[in-house]
Structure formats: C-alpha cells, structure tokens
C-alpha cells in the first residue's frame, strides 16, 4: 500500500506547490500592471510584437476558417434546404468561438514560445539577476509590459480576425455557392448581436493574459541552460493552449449560461 501512496502523495504535493507558486506569480504580475512606475516604451514595443507582427498569422487563420466554415455548413444544411442559415452560422461561430480561440492558440504558439525563450535565456544568463542588482524589479520591467500588451492587443487582433473570418465566409458563399451578396450581408447583420462580439473580445483579453502569463512564468522559472529554456518554451505553449480551452468554457458559461 505504502509504495503506491508515496508517489501519489508526492505528485499531489508537487501539484499544490506549483499551483501556489503560479497563484503568487500571477498576483505579483497583475499588481505590477497597475502600480507605477510604468515603462511606456517597453509596453509599446511589446504591443507591436504581440499585435502587429501576429496579424498575418491570425488573419490567414481567420480567412481560411471562415471559408471552410461556409463550405462545410453548406454541405450539411443543403440536405435540409437550410442554406439561408449559413451567414448566421458563420458570423456566430467566428465571433463567439473560432475567432478568439484560434487567435489565442496561434498567439500562444508564436508569442508564448517567444516570451518563454527570451525570459528563460535572460534567467540562465543571469540577466534577470543583473536587473535586480540595478535596482529594477523584473516583474515591472519584463512581465508587466508583456501582460498589458497581451491583454490589450489580443482583443484588437480578434476583432480584426472576426471581420476577416466573416469576409472569408462571404467570399466562398458569393463566388462558390452562389449566394446573393446583399442578402448575405443583411442576414449576417440581422443575426449578429453585440453580445456575440463582446463575449469574444472578453475571451480574447483573458486568453491574452493567459498566453503572456504562461510565457513569463515558465521563462522566469527556467533552469539548466539551453535544455531548460527549451523545456520552458514547450511548457509555455502547452499550458497556455490547455488553459485557453478551459477558460473558453468558463467564459462561455458566464455569457451564455441558461
């Protein structure tokens, strides 16, 4: 019995330790986002890195998702002569779910990994210790600008992804499925509610926080040279992706629970 319980207990204690460390890290990171001094130059640089440079990958994901969604919906709905529901399905799916989730996952792969690698390298090359000896708080200088940029830029990215995704569905519906352009746009606008877009943007802000937080957390705690940095990068992407899917369910429940 004891040989079974020992590893179980050790795993449970390790889980509690990691959870506690993550909660404290999150609390410290968020508190430094709202307490001066701020570093506007660093925040702007991170906004460009996270927002502007992620636009191509998020845009491409959104347009192809919208196009596939229109095609797939058509093949299903045509059996029941319900083709007129396609604009509704495209716009609601994109704004509520696919826009924020796919943009979040793409940014997790691009930005979460980059943040973990950069901060992890700073950790193993003593640059974070150097910051401390220069009387500069690493949470304020490294982590808060990334969190602020992540939480503000992801909603903007998702808003753009929503527009591009819906446009992708429009292109396929008009030029491939033979829809009338004006009735497609009218249907889209009729079915779209403010809450659909708002819920997607709230999700995006949460996902932005999760992606940057996981990148910073795993990078900050990386150990053991290049191998440790590699492990931190993988962990950042995997944990951010899983947390995005979990948070997506929770936020959806909060907005659309009956």
């Amino acid at each position: 019995m004891i040989p079974i319980l020992t590893p179980l207990g050790r795993t449970f204690l390790s889980f509690l330790q990691i959870t506690g460390r993550l909660v404290i890290f999150t609390g410290r990171a968020l508190s430094h986002c709202v307490r001066p001094p701020f570093y506007p130059r660093l925040i702007a640089r991170q906004m460009i890195e996270i927002g502007y440079y992620s636009l191509p990958v998020v845009g491409l994901t959104a347009i192809f998702t919208g196009m596939v969604l229109a095609l797939q919906s058509y093949t299903g709905f045509a059996r029941f002569s319900a083709e007129s529901a396609i604009p509704n399905v495209v716009v609601v799916s994109i704004t509520r779910e696919l826009g924020p989730v796919l943009a979040g996952l793409m940014v997790a792969g691009r930005i979460g990994a980059a943040i973990a690698a950069e901060i992890g390298t700073m950790r193993v090359t003593e640059q974070i210790d150097a910051l401390k000896t220069l009387a500069t708080n690493p949470f304020k200088y490294l982590i808060a600008p990334r969190l602020i940029a992540g939480m503000t830029m992801l909603p903007i990215l998702v808003l753009i992804a929503d527009i591009i995704g819906v446009f992708g569905g429009y292109l396929v519906s008009i030029y491939s499925l033979g829809f009338n352009p004006s009735s497609y746009i009218n249907n889209t606008m009729d079915f779209l509610h403010a809450q659909d877009v708002i819920s997607g943007l709230v999700k995006a802000a949460v996902f932005g926080m999760l992606v940057t937080l996981m990148g910073c957390y795993h990078g900050y705690h990386s150990r053991g040279g290049a191998q440790g940095v590699g492990r931190a990068t993988t962990n950042a992407v995997v944990s951010a992706s899983i947390l995005i899917l979990c948070a997506n369910y929770i936020v959806t429940g909060l907005f659309f629970d009956r």
């Binding site: 700073m122 640059q127 210790d129 220069l134 009387a135």
Partner: peptide, 19 residues
C-alpha cells in the same frame, strides 16, 4: 532596491541585456 543602488556588479558572463 535602495540598498542595491549602492552596489555595482560585474557578472561572470557579463549578463548584458541582449535586446
């Protein structure tokens, strides 16, 4: 941090900020 303002430190690998 107030105390650290009185310190200077040269690290083994220099620890210069890459960015």
């Amino acid at each position: 941090d107030n105390f650290r303002t009185r310190f200077g430190m040269l690290f083994q690998g220099s620890a210069l900020f890459d960015s």
